[in-house]
Amino acid sequence: PEAADLRALSRHLYEAYLKYFPLTKAKARAILSGKTADNAPFVIHDMKSLLEGEQFINCKQIPTPEHQQQMSALTVAHGGLSGAHQGLECNILDAVELRFFHSCQSRSAEAVREVTEFAKSIPGFIELDLNDQVTLLKYGVIEVLIIMMAPLMNKDGTLIAYGQIFMTREFLKSLRKPFCQMLEPKFEFSVKFNTLELDDSDMALFLAVVILSGDRPGLLNVKPIEQLQETVLHALELQLKLNHPDSLQLFAKLLQKMTDLRQIVTDHVHLIQLLKKSEMEMCLHPLLQEIIKDLY
């Protein structure tokens, strides 16, 4: 009966994952390997194709009506930045990194909303102290977003804009500092992480484990969080045994990734703080500001 409960939990989290995250690993890998019936993604590999890509994405619609509606509302809610963004579009090529960075921020803010909805679907999460729910999200969400970048990446580049665009790693490395430094550590993490060959159902459990970390600073009531995490950890261990019977120590290898993630997030936050100082025109999305402020 215990194993049956754990399997039910795994199914529940997988269903929530499919509900809230529009671009699954299965879909991303199909796009990256050219196996989709749709058109291949638009490739951004230099400044010219970046400018073309911006037009390309402006003409395209967001995948589902539900997401389109939510994205529009989030953009309206964030009118200050949208205005700044449009103003920047008139600028010369020098501003292209900033403009791209603003687009990344808008997508990141939307992704935080998706992760929040996923967190709320974890059984027991919404019963936790509300302050602790905030803390778990504040500290967990960037780690989750970095994990979720892995399926979109290969050694040569990354899918962006819901899989409609592929941006090359070389192009990202060619941007001026510190923009060129922002994604390289994520590529390094992703290439190693992808060798574990997790599928979407494994990912759903791993993301829940990361969110339910009982050692986040400032938590008021650690015990119920640890209890929830222990149950999800059992579900993950069972899932990996069943789904990857030949992959030795996969559970241990996956847990080790949680340590690597903390350093990547710390470095990421430092880069953003550096950007805030060096790029006077740059304004941070208020939701991302909340998360990053006093983080590490």
Binding site: Q70, A73, L74, A77, H78, V112, R113, T116, E117, K120, I126, L130, N131, Q133, V134, T135, L137, K138, G218, P286, L287, E290, I291, K293
Partner: peptide, 21 residues
């Protein structure tokens, strides 16, 4: 904490509706 994280708090409290800043 709630005061410092108004949007996160809103996201947690509202169902699937987007944030109204």
């Amino acid at each position: 904490l709630k005061e410092k994280h108004k949007i996160l708090h809103q996201l947690l409290q509202n169902s699937t509706s987007p944030v109204d800043l």
